[in-house]
């Protein structure tokens, strides 16, 4: 038995054969003449391999066309049309390829990494020979991993197919099945989000990808919905993250809470004449703008007594409430895991 040639070489020979054929090749011609297929193997084995190869080529953007020739009865043939797979004419400079390589690096360790790397390989075919120029040195963009849900959701959004998935709501912890028209996927502030129309609620909703459990399934065909022209997925995400801009007044111990000081829009020190009498001695008063009460409360109360909220009252109450919860903590060791562990 001849040494089996690697799949990439079989696929390469298949592509070359189907591009160069005059008219079409039948399955039998492919099986017996294209290098890499076993002419003496079973028909079933060939069929399976050929179907897989067609799928692989379609994934790569090289569609295998089915040609039915009337004069040959219902016997089907195949060919590949170079116009169907060719990149439109374009040239890229080596500096542009450098930018694209940086963009591909963006997806480091991500589900889209393979796609980006492959796109880069394709574009390198039309790029200039590299020179030493590095147009975008000193930049390294990174995005948080999206998890396994990103690719199926992205494919569904591209094709406008309806998806469903099991989702754990953040506010209540409730777990249930959601059916959604996926509009857009957005990476923002350390998380990945799906914005779309929740079919059961008949309203737009924002879903965090990391709260999707299990697999995403699609139902029905493509073009199952249209994104309303006035829909603004980014605004929906933003409004789910924030409310209106406000300013907090914070008393901060000298030399503490540097991160808050870095963002402060105004700082009144101990030595600064200040008409207000609510400034505790030994502390500076900062004004920090914020959008979400809960977000700032969470940051501020982490400094414990180094930062005291002077206003607004809602923020102050939020911080005090969180502190009361923390003050109620009592020592409680975890019950040992089932496997048993000794410390």
């Amino acid at each position: 038995m001849p040494a089996q040639i690697p799949p990439a070489e079989r696929l390469l020979n298949l592509v070359i054969a189907l591009v160069n054929t005059t008219g079409r090749m039948t399955k039998e011609q492919i099986r017996t003449s294209v290098a890499g297929y076993d002419p003496s193997g079973s028909t079933e084995a060939f069929e399976r391999m050929f179907e897989r190869d067609k799928d692989t080529l379609r994934e790569l953007g090289v569609p295998v066309l089915t040609v039915t020739d009337q004069t040959h009865g219902d016997d089907q043939g195949y060919r590949i049309d170079p116009d169907a797979y060719a990149l439109p004419p374009m040239e890229l400079t080596s500096a542009q390829l450098g930018v694209l390589a940086l963009a591909a690096e963006f997806w480091h360790d991500q589900s889209l990494q393979a796609d980006a790397a492959r796109a880069l390989t394709k574009l390198r075919a039309v790029g200039a020979t590299p020179t030493a120029t590095d147009a975008v040195a000193a930049l390294a963009p990174r995005v948080h991993p999206a998890g396994p849900a990103l690719v199926p959701l992205l494919d569904a959004a591209q094709d406008r197919r309806v998806v469903s998935f099991t989702y754990r709501a953040a506010s209540t912890g409730e777990v249930r099945r959601r059916t959604v028209e996926p509009w857009r996927l957005i990476a923002s502030r350390g998380g990945w989000y799906l914005v779309g129309r929740d079919r059961d609620r008949a309203a737009p909703r924002v879903f965090r990808l990391s709260r999707i459990t299990g697999s995403v399934t699609t139902s029905g065909g493509p073009d199952a919905f249209t994104v309303p022209p006035d829909a603004d997925p980014n605004a929906l995400l933003l409004s789910s993250q924030t409310t209106q801009g406000r300013v907090a007044r914070l008393a901060v111990a000298t030399d503490r809470a540097g991160a808050l000081r870095a963002r402060a829009t105004s700082v009144v020190g101990e030595s600064t004449p200040d008409a207000r009498t609510d400034v505790p001695a030994g502390m500076d008063v900062l004004e920090v703008s914020y959008t979400v009460t809960g977000d700032l409360a969470e940051e501020v109360f982490g400094y414990a007594d180094a930062v005291v909220v002077l206003g607004p009252p809602a923020l102050r109450e939020d911080v005090v409430r969180r502190l009361r919860v923390a003050a109620a903590l009592v020592d409680l060791a975890p019950t040992p895991p089932a496997g048993g562990s000794d410390g």
Binding site: L60, G61, Y85, R118, A119, K122, L123, A125, L154, D155
Partner: peptide
């Protein structure tokens, strides 16, 4: 050269 797929 090969064209880019949607995800690419």
């Amino acid at each position: 050269a090969l064209r880019l797929g949607a995800r690419e």
